[in-house]
Design a protein around this nucleic acid. Structure first.
Lengths: 231, 231
DNA sequence: ATTATTTTTTGATTTAAGTCAAGGAAGGTT
DNA sequence: AACCTTCCTTGACTTAAATCAAAAAATAAT
């Protein structure tokens, strides 16, 4: 990857938006690129967090593993998004695992560089603050969904969320497999399959592969809000 | 509450530790105090976050409400601890409810004051960064416990956590009711009661009111790690 | 102390969702 | 095309935990 391309990528990271060209060029000179095959691990729970990552292509999953090997996916990270900043910032170890779920490329930004940036531009910390509080809100939502609702409610909320982030689109396309979706919602593929099947048979949605078309938004909202839906 | 007392309280808040006396005095001149009865609401989900709070006495619970009124407690806040900074910082609305669970007193610190502080001392933002990433780690843990483990595992982990925060003490005392504990662990009082009963009958712990004595730490750790325990 | 209120325990029952098992569908590879 | 994975669906069964109901215990109030 050329330096110019790297600058283009990092200039769009929320953390780095608004930085002067000279600083961006400096960063671009230090970051290293990594090519990853499908299924390749980037780091594991407990590893030293000596820097953080930006996805330039592909898709990375961040997940925890129970002692039996059952995984709970915390989130997926796609192009332009970053991961690993929080433990990097506090100098801790990574609290979760990261793995590419398809052929991907990531940039690695070392901690030392980051510390220097803060020294040079104190308001740089402000942007970081904003990012962290966004993350907190996201976790807040995750906790709410995992504990307040039953699986159909979580699934309905997730479909509406995807639709909403596209301005109320009637048709959405999953960027992940249904198995991954299951883990993201804290359940298993079989359960997701059954609920999607039931919702289809009741003409609430229409499912074709990874495409989901919303036929009855009202009902979907009810399921999401009340959490009640009988299989 | 006298100004001197207020200064003493806020000087111990992680966010304000290390600030010069003049700034502390200035803050103390602006904060307002609130006395709360048991069960009194401080703010509700959706309210404008025009500032944040510090508990000076009593206990406050932060919780979400499902549409049926079932509550999931996110955390409890005791003397010296703060709540509401995250939405205050990002200028959002409160994402949860706050309510005193006993007679309490809280200080209110307005957003405007906070913004001025950042302007005057950019490194003030650094302390905030550190605090936020600690919160994130905490949420991380909560998500893990809610989704990776069954209820006995969560309870075992919670008991060990309380013991651990007391340097491995064999006897711990709950600062909350068992009903609140249930909600905190994403379950109901009956289930907590049954699990504690079973653990007692197997001499893993001994329960007397809100006191819990650990008799068999090894087994407790196994339940926490494997998540397996049969009632 | 006696009443009232909140908290905790116990038992019977229901239910959502997990497990196990096995067949299909889809996608990629040679 | 035929092959091989990986992904998805369906069915029968099991189980952890929620719900419902009611009594006992502990706290607080008068």
């Amino acid at each position: 990857m050329k330096v110019i391309e790297v600058i283009e990528v990092i200039a769009k990271i929320p953390l780095f938006i608004g930085l002067p060209k000279e600083q961006l060029a400096k960063i671009a000179g230090i970051v290293t690129e990594q090519a990853l095959d499908k299924g390749e691990a980037i780091f594991s729970q407990g590893d030293e967090a000596s820097g953080f990552y930006v996805v330039t292509s592909g898709m990375v999953k961040i997940f925890k593993l129970s002692s039996e090997g059952k995984e709970q996916i915390l989130h997926f990270v796609g192009p332009g998004q970053t991961f690993g900043e929080v433990p990097m910032f506090s100098g801790e170890r990574f609290p979760a695992n990261a793995e590419a779920i398809e052929k991907s490329r990531v940039l690695f930004i070392p901690r030392t560089l980051f510390l220097e940036l803060i020294k040079q531009d104190p308001f740089f910390a402000m942007r970081m603050l904003s990012e962290l509080s966004k993350r907190l809100r996201h976790f807040n939502r995750l906790v709410e969904e995992l504990s307040l609702k039953e699986v159909p409610g979580r699934l309905a909320a997730y479909i509406l969320y995807l639709s909403g982030s596209k301005g109320g689109a009637e048709e959405i396309t999953l960027s992940i497999t249904k198995g991954h979706l299951a883990s993201l919602l804290g359940t298993i593929p079989e359960t997701i399959s059954r609920i999607l099947g039931k919702m289809s048979s009741q003409d609430i949605i229409r499912v074709q592969g990874r495409k989901i078309r919303i036929l009855n938004r009202r009902t979907l909202e009810e399921i999401s809000e009340s959490g009640k839906y009988f299989l």
